[in-house]
């Protein structure tokens, strides 16, 4: 195997892919959460729908969408490969282990959190991405905001969404700073800043996400 391809397939190489796709997905979250926040303008979804429409039809965004899916898939595939290697690295487990003494539960549970997020994501795509796609290809008018209002009338849906973004929050709490560490971006002065930003990002972004279904369910926006 050539030295360059090792850069992606060795232990650190796989981590590199994880970190890079993770950061890419984080950047997507910023866009997503910004558009979501538009509903709080409380203008009957007008601005929000303009943005949603733009996202659905703009050619650049649609190309990037492919990249986004590739990113997600790569992130998942690498995670599965890493996890199976990691499990193989300790064939016999400890009879008594006390990991809580030295690390945070969510940092050890990225696979579980990721799986929860993925399950949520399937539902989420079914709810919102699929109808948009259908409308694009059938050239029908699609009112995304109306769709949202409709879907978030159901209690269980709201609950699943809230749980989904909580999983996302914990995933980010470890993942944000971890990706910087993996990429080797560590610095005596800057790492504390990254860590602080990471914590706030992991709290604020999921809260904004969670507020959408909650606000609609309780009729705070309409």
């Amino acid at each position: 195997m050539s030295s360059l391809s090792k850069a992606f397939t060795s232990s650190i190489g796989k981590k590199f892919v994880m970190g890079l796709t993770g950061l890419f997905l984080i950047s997507f979250l910023i866009v997503h959460v910004s558009i979501n926040a538009l509903i709080f303008l409380n203008d009957g979804g007008e601005t929000f729908n303009v943005a949603a429409d733009f996202m659905a039809h703009n050619i650049v965004i649609r190309i990037m969408e492919v990249g986004l899916f590739l990113g997600i898939i790569l992130h998942i595939v690498q995670a599965i490969m890493l996890t199976s290697q990691n499990n193989a690295a300790r064939p016999e487990k400890y009879a008594y282990n006390k990991p809580q003494a030295n690390s945070k539960w969510y940092s050890r549970s990225m696979g579980l959190l990721g799986t929860l997020i993925l399950m949520f994501l399937v539902l989420h795509l079914y709810h919102f991405w699929w109808p948009t796609k259908v409308s694009v290809y059938t050239h029908q008018e699609h009112n995304t905001f109306q769709n949202i209002v409709m879907i978030f009338q159901e209690e269980w849906v709201v609950a699943v969404y809230v749980l989904g973004v909580i999983s996302l929050g914990y995933h980010l709490l470890h993942g944000f700073q971890s990706s910087f560490q993996t990429m080797g971006w560590n610095h005596k002065k800057w790492t504390p800043v990254v860590k602080t930003v990471g914590v706030w990002f992991s709290i604020i972004v999921p809260i904004i996400f969670a507020l959408m279904p909650i606000a609609i369910y309780f009729g705070w926006v309409s």
Partner: peptide, 22 residues
């Protein structure tokens, strides 16, 4: 060194920080 580390069958780092703590 990384190539040898991989060959030995060690796992991958997931930045939990347990190593530093212990």
């Amino acid at each position: 060194m990384v190539a040898q580390m991989d060959e030995e069958g060690f796992g991958n780092c997931t930045n939990t920080g347990a190593c530093e703590a212990e």
